[in-house]
């Protein structure tokens, strides 16, 4: 109980990942979907850092760095697209984005 092992961190990562997935599935607003995506990326980062610590290997931390870089660029491009969409249509609801339905 008092000693924190790798399993504790993996369970925490699972819980956070589940919270993020619930957010992805139940949100209609695209901005909120982006928030949920950040939660997903962060929960995996915790798992990487924990494995890196408990196995004495730096690869996990390296992957966490690259995940952070990808998250930053995803936010930049995604928000740019979102602003363009909002200027055009006045809303960012997911259900209205059905122009490519065919």
């Amino acid at each position: 109980m008092m000693e924190i092992t790798l399993n504790h961190y993996l369970v925490l990562s699972t819980i956070l990942f589940a919270i993020g997935l619930v957010g992805v599935m139940r949100r209609k607003n695209l901005l909120m979907l982006f928030f949920a995506t950040e939660i997903l990326l962060n929960s995996v980062n915790i798992a990487f850092a924990a494995i890196s610590h408990f196995y004495g290997d730096l690869t996990g931390q390296m992957f966490a760095f690259f995940v952070i870089a990808i998250a930053a660029s995803e936010v930049a491009v995604g928000l740019g697209l979102l602003i363009v969409w909002h200027k055009r249509h006045g809303n960012i609801d997911l259900d209205t984005m059905s122009t490519m339905r065919g």
């Binding site: 993996l10 369970v11 990562s13 699972t14 819980i15 990942f17 589940a18 919270i19 997935l21 619930v22 599935m25 139940r26 949100r27 209609k28 607003n29 909120m32 995996v44 798992a47 494995i51 609801d93």
Partner: peptide
């Protein structure tokens, strides 16, 4: 206020937990 999808809550939570456990299995 932000609008939300009101689907089946059981399916949403069940799928989320399943996928999260799957991720841990992949990592572990």
């Amino acid at each position: 206020d932000v609008k939300e999808k009101h689907g089946n809550k059981l399916i949403v939570s069940g799928l989320s937990i399943l996928v999260a456990v799957l991720v841990v299995v992949i990592i572990a």
